[in-house]
């Protein structure tokens, strides 16, 4: 058992996965000698060498497209896109091929690969380095989309993603990379993809979030407890696709009130889907409209103003209080 941050925990998972399964290869820009711009691939090249830790040309479509070929050939590629802001270049490879091979060949050809990318704002990064576009992938049938929120679940979820027989988008909340440390057990852990976690029990309102937004959500829940004597239940979604409807519906049917929190833009965002599912299956339990605390429908502002765009504790608290008072 060791205490580590999320960056280290993801690195640990990659290391372990490569040690356990020689089919696992890592490819991407600067993942080898440089060990990744966020040092996520630290030590991998030194240990596993050029053949399995592959510095590629600077071409995202090329990285994902060749990873698809490798996966078809029987490898378990983990493709790193340096920042999610560049994964639009490779989107068509995921949409047209990774997501479809199993279906269009009726199960004969499958693409067990992982695309990892740091996503989200909050680190005062360059332009095009802070987007949250998980909804694009969630809207792409055939992909799975997971987003960890802590070192321990990041490591477990990455193992699950690598072992998964289907293509998985693994988005890393880069604001969390080095934000805090957590005990990560020595023995191997996985987390079932498609399962959310209730991280705080409560009875008055349900707060649903994931990734970097989970922390301000939890803070808001604690303040509701202290200041309002209100018991908020907090759900960490972890898997965007498949989404764990049961956990959400069970909680909302109990509390009758919900607020969804995420960084990505609001329109057709993950929150829209969550609310649609609540509408379909828990409508008659609702005491108030379900609120969304999300990024706005604008490009995430450059860092002088990004904090106004991102969900924070105050915004969540305000939305929760208004929902409770409805």
């Amino acid at each position: 058992m060791a205490e580590m941050n999320m960056a280290k925990a993801i690195n640990k998972a990659l290391f372990e996965a490569m040690e356990r399964d020689e089919r696992v290869v890592v490819l991407g820009e600067d993942v080898g000698k440089d060990e990744g711009v966020f040092r996520i691939t630290e030590g991998l090249h030194a240990k596993f060498g050029d053949r399995r830790v592959i510095d590629t040309p600077l071409a995202e479509s090329g990285i994902v497209g060749t990873a698809i070929g490798m996966a078809i050939y029987g490898l378990r590629p983990v493709a790193e896109i340096q920042f999610s802001g560049f994964d639009y270049y490779n989107y068509h490879q995921l949409e047209s091929h990774a997501a479809r091979f199993r279906n269009r060949t009726r199960g004969r050809i499958t693409v067990p690969m992982v695309m990892r990318a740091p996503y989200g704002g909050g680190i005062r990064a360059l332009e095009h380095h802070s987007e949250s576009r998980e909804a694009i992938y969630a809207h792409t049938p055939g992909l799975k989309v997971v987003i960890p929120s802590s070192p321990r679940n990041a490591r477990a979820l990455l193992h699950s993603a690598i072992q998964d027989p289907d293509p998985v988008i693994y988005y890393e909340p880069k604001a969390v990379y080095r934000a805090f440390k957590e005990e990560v057990p020595d023995q191997l852990e996985t987390l079932p993809i498609g399962q959310a976690q209730v991280v705080k029990k409560g009875s008055d309102i349900t707060l649903i979030s994931y990734g970097a937004s989970l922390r301000p959500t939890l803070e808001a829940a604690e303040l509701l407890e202290e200041e309002d004597n209100c018991h908020a239940e907090v759900i960490d979604l972890l898997s965007i696709v498949p989404m764990d409807s049961e956990t959400i519906l069970e909680s909302v049917s109990k509390t009758g009130r919900a607020v969804v929190v995420h960084e990505g833009p609001r329109t057709c965002g993950v929150g829209s889907e969550i609310i649609a599912r609540i509408n379909e299956d828990a409508l008659l339990y609702l005491e108030a409209p379900v609120r969304r605390v999300t990024g706005y429908d604008v490009p995430i502002p450059y860092f002088s103003k990004e904090r106004f765009f991102l969900p924070d504790t105050d915004k969540i608290l305000e939305a929760a209080r208004e929902t409770l008072a409805f």
Partner: peptide, 16 residues
Amino acid sequence: SQLLHAAGLGMAMNIK
């Protein structure tokens, strides 16, 4: 788009 799958298959052959 298939040219990248071919390249990936070839790279995998080299790896293996």
